[in-house]
Design a protein around this nucleic acid. Structure first.
Lengths: 239, 239
DNA sequence: CATCCTTATTGCTCCAGAACAAATTCCGAC
DNA sequence: GTCGGAATTTGTTCTGGAGCAATAAGGATG
């Protein structure tokens, strides 16, 4: 089994408050795994055999409806936990996780969770915080979908992606993994057509630049203003 | 301080796996509190001073956007936990919780959480499961909002409410607390106008009956079919 | 470098449902 | 029982963005 250096993961929220010895012990139960771009780490409905930490790369969690439509649940950045279905009491994975770039994950068999938690209770509280934060984000998304129109939702989604996985480049902040118009549509509850049109309009205004599977935010601040108040709205007086 | 009988809460998911002695010890840190209909238990943005279990009644959690629009995050039924912001690492409540009926809650100061968890680690794992389940529900809601049209979303929302807090009555299943068209609109991301029209149409078909703040599902099964496949769609062949 | 396939762009039509606008009904308070 | 505010219903108009239909532009493959 590949040996993982505890210093690589010591700073992750999942392992906050653990000594190097504890960490080594926890890591000894895990194995690391390469997942090539466009391959699934696991699939929706499968038995939740393992839980994971993403060491390198980017993966996407998505759900498929009975009718076959997909929506993107979230993108997972390096260092984040995913697939903790078993800890949440689920027998099966509620979503499919796919590598959007060549990625490396650390995997623990779900069976080890109860024992690890019994021995290191902080694992449970750390995970609770992570899951809690995700719940808040998802509520925010529900609020946005309920109250904002498409343009602002797309702006919010891009800003969030840039914050989570943005990379400074010459012309602005680039989203650091391949992402299609379709993906953005599935994150914002719209169609790839509308996303394409919206980005084209922004590109004409110099707010973003993009090409196939690539987006650079040239003017994050202007995008932020647009996300917060919409493109026309004559800034509320008295506020 | 009002004494709470441990047998009242022993069966709740929050306290699964606790002995009567443990329970008494945990309960000794809590106090119970009456909240009259239409009063808030706490408000969005306030310091997260306590966490709660609902002993009696019904409360609603809602979020307000900067622009002043409200959306309903969820309804809490008897026995459920709410306000566990502190356990999730939040300083402030992310939503406002309002009693929709005269209610009784059990409250623990947030400061007791770390100590309780240290002493009773199962509290953390139980809470993790609860929060995890809520995350899944919220994802389901996102999926619905992304892929279904209004009529089906309303049907799903009603069925969920009926499942959670339905009461058998002569003509069907009644939702066991006052809920307005506006509330349903805020749960499904639409307007009260559209909800009113939709319910009126269903009432004409005998699917539901309703009056001010009251809804009875007369034909839950038909509503279910509608929720799953829409009102027209000619049942997919070969499936 | 020719072919194929995936992704992206763009024009056009159409409609679900939002927005606006009144009425109307119900309930609690005095 | 009358008054006043909140909840609901219902009619009408309007539009954001979905749906449909091509076309174009990249990348990958052999």
């Amino acid at each position: 089994m590949a040996k993982v250096n505890s210093s690589l993961v010591a700073h992750l929220p999942m392992f906050a408050g653990f000594s190097a010895t504890d960490l080594d012990s926890i890591l000894s139960e895990a194995h690391s795994l390469r997942v090539a771009k466009n391959n699934n780490v696991f699939e929706q409905g499968q038995d939740a055999h393992s839980f994971f930490v993403l060491l390198h790369g980017h993966v996407r969690a998505s759900r498929t409806t009975p009718a076959g439509e997909q929506i993107v649940v979230r993108y997972v950045a390096t260092g984040e936990t995913f697939g903790v279905a078993a800890a949440m009491g689920l027998q099966h994975y509620p979503a499919t996780v796919t590598a959007v770039d060549d990625s490396v994950v650390l995997a623990w068999p779900s069976g080890t969770w109860p024992r690890l938690v019994a021995q290191y209770p902080a694992l449970a509280t750390n995970t609770l915080q992570t899951v809690g934060a995700r719940l808040q984000e998802t509520h925010t998304r529900v609020v946005e979908m309920s109250t904002e129109q498409v343009e602002r939702r797309i702006a919010h989604a891009l800003l969030r992606l840039a914050k989570q996985s943005g990379r400074q480049v010459a012309t602005g902040v680039e989203i650091d993994f391949p992402i299609s118009r379709q993906d953005i549509a599935q994150m914002t509850g719209t169609t790839l057509h509308t996303v394409s049109r919206t980005l084209a309009a922004w590109e004409a205004k110099g707010l973003v630049e993009g090409s196939r599977q690539r987006i650079v935010l040239r003017e994050p601040h202007k995008l932020f203003v647009l996300a917060e108040q919409g493109s026309d709205e004559p800034s509320p007086p008295g506020t």
